[in-house]
Write a protein that binds this DNA or RNA. Sequence first.
RNA 1: GGAGGUAUUGUCUAAUGGUAGGACGUCACCCUUACACGGUGAAGGCAGGGGUUCGAUUCCCUUUACCUCCACCA
Length: 793
Amino acid sequence: MESRYDPNIVEGKIRKFWEENQIYKFEIEGKKEIFSIDTPPPTVSGELHLGHAFSYSQAEFIARYKRMRGYSVFYPFGLDNNGLPTEMLIEKKFDTTAEKLGREKFVELVRREIAVYNERYIELWKKMGVSVDWSLLYQTISPDVQKISQKSFLELNKMGRAYRKEAPALFCPKDRTTVSQMELKDKMLKSKIIYLKFSDDVTIATTRPELLPACVAIFVGLDDPKHKHLVGKEIAVPIFGNKVKVIADRRVDPEFGTGVVMCCTFGDQTDIEWYKQYNLELKMIIDEKGRMDHPYYNGIKIKEAREKIIKDLSEKGFLVSEEEIEHNVNVHDRCGTEIEFIVKKQWYIRYLDLKPKFLELGSEVKWHPSHMKVRYDNWVNALAWDWSISRQRFFGVFFPMWYCKKCDEPHFAEEKDLPINPFIDKPKGKCTKCESEEFEPETDVMDTWATSSLTPLINARWGIDDKYKKILPMSLRAQAHDIISFWAFNTIVKSYFHMGTIPWREIIISGHGLDSKGQPMHKSAGNVVSPEQYLPKYGADPIRYWASSSVLGEDNSFQEKEVITGSRLINKLWNVTRFVEMTSQEFERSQSPSLLDKWILHRLEETVTKATEEFDNYDYFKARSTIEALFWEFSNDYMEFVKDRVYAKDKKVAYVLNIVLVDLVKMFAPFIPFVTEEIYQSVLLSGGTIERLGWEKAKSIHLESWPKSHGKKEKEIEDALLLVRIILFVRKWKHDNRLALNSEIGEVVLSKEIEKRLGRYVDELKSAMKIKEVKFGEGELELEEGVRLSIKA
RNA sequence: GGAGGUAUUGUCUAAUGGUAGGACGUCACCCUUACACGGUGAAGGCAGGGGUUCGAUUCCCUUUACCUCCACCA
């Protein structure tokens, strides 16, 4: 055994060993019960950071634990590499756009490029030592997944759940795509609020004067005495002269601005609500490129339009005043551009009628921590729109359909022909409505959530073969809390539609890995820390150690010192092993173990019971702490106390040292898989420890069985604990008297009361603390009630 | 504006209705045949204000700060 543990040499070797021996291969056949994990496919959108490593290791600890508990663990890995984030990554890298390149060339470029990122992601995850079965890898852009996603769409369509409707959609003028509610972000932006005179008694405040040509109504507060007389009248719009009605509505705050609001289709969400409620006229004046589509503006950009009309209004005397303000606006999460509304035909999934069902399904899943379910419930209760799944983008899963050129009737692909690329594949048959044979493809792609919400079905190879049908419903979903409303919710939705059940029995929600100051890692904040930075220095085990230092659901800031602590633990474990290895040649199981042996065996027993319980509850951090507590007692106390016996080649102490070590190494294995594997292979297996203990050998520590508690209670535990307290007291006395801890002391006198309990074990005390003589009599120092002792150097 | 979470020594982080544990850092001591990348000790803490209680860091209310999600933003 090397005197020093070098992760850089060992980890690579171990990784190779795992791969060559397929240690993490999922076995579908056999008697073992299946434990299936639905892990998040990371979005391929750039470099991975420690926040990712943090989130992903949560499921990883559980997977390794469950494997040791004898489950056949289905632990796949996925890559979410379709959709806008991936497109933007490539557009940025090559400083181009999909429009410039054209659809085909662009898609090809993205395909080629993501292969590189895929490799990088996988490589890093392997380095971190995740125990996924890589043969289960899926990508959301792969043909199989496209097929599943398209099948889902076709099924929803057959169920009458999919519908196409012209509706206002959130739209990002910069990325030229519709976006969903979930892609919005608030941003404080400077802007101008303009006061416009519509008539002598009507002045309107607006931040969007350029929308004036789209003004279709004027609103005042419901019971606003100042403006009550206006309700029902018609007022002319400045410059354009068309007359619009004045309507009273509760959504207007009489105290804000002038108390009079213009409604333009569409300036914001309220405009849309009014448009729907009062059947207002539709005037779209912004096109899909974010340019003004109105004769007055002649195709200029929104910001220019604003300046132009302000100038014009001012010249024509409509402008009363303008104020600089800072206000919250909805911007696109990814590019920060202000969101507009456009009206487009989009595909929707109708599901608002199922809100009670979704709440019910949410309750069927067991949430860890339980309070995370509240977020799910809140989201479902607040749902106000059907699910829009169309995106005007390029690199994504295509809708498997065309439209009739003559009558616009949708024409769907057949399931057996999936996956379909409607740009290449030709539709079969004639238009069901007009019998035309000419079609054009649906140019939109599906929202990536429409696909990633299918991960349980993707994992089960739904519609491809029945190989992994058994994994459903999955045992566990692991994800972070920010996407409860998207990923968790949408997965439950799709699972209900396609299977009629919940997708998984339990869900664990992790927090975020934050930077050392507790800030979320964002590229824009410049605080992104990559695991690559720390891997060469410490290896993967210590980074995993950091990642395991948090309670489920809580954020965890990255602290290098935590990594260092992990590093020291590993070093200590290595050296403990080296010490114990010296004793591993001959064991003898004692029928009457010494008091200290009983003590440490009792502690082992306690630890196994407690850690198992905690792990079963997904409290891996508690489990780790429990295990660590035993480890430090074992190495700093027990091992020190029995050194004399070790040097004297006592076979009984050898036995105790080795079983405690083996169980500790096993219990540490889910957290620090590399060093524990190395110890298992190079010492416990090849040194013959496992064999001599009479235990069953495994190919890898990670296929070993988790230690079992025997439920046996050692007798005399109270006496053993007293003995330990006395030893610790003597140790402190040595320290206080500036003596080396292995120095000899002449005499210890213990009070008479102790003689009855510990009289037989005096030799253990003597040997543990190098005491020449132990007597019983009257002690001077008080250890605790009834226990007094004197110590003489 | 609403919902959820969090607030513990210089820093990071646990537990707990009755003496708050650990890690890093600091200080002191110990070069001990597994480890000085070690060991033994010490100093140092419950965000503010109310309430319940014999007793509150813990339970309740509230203020403040931060994180996440949602809504509003004329």
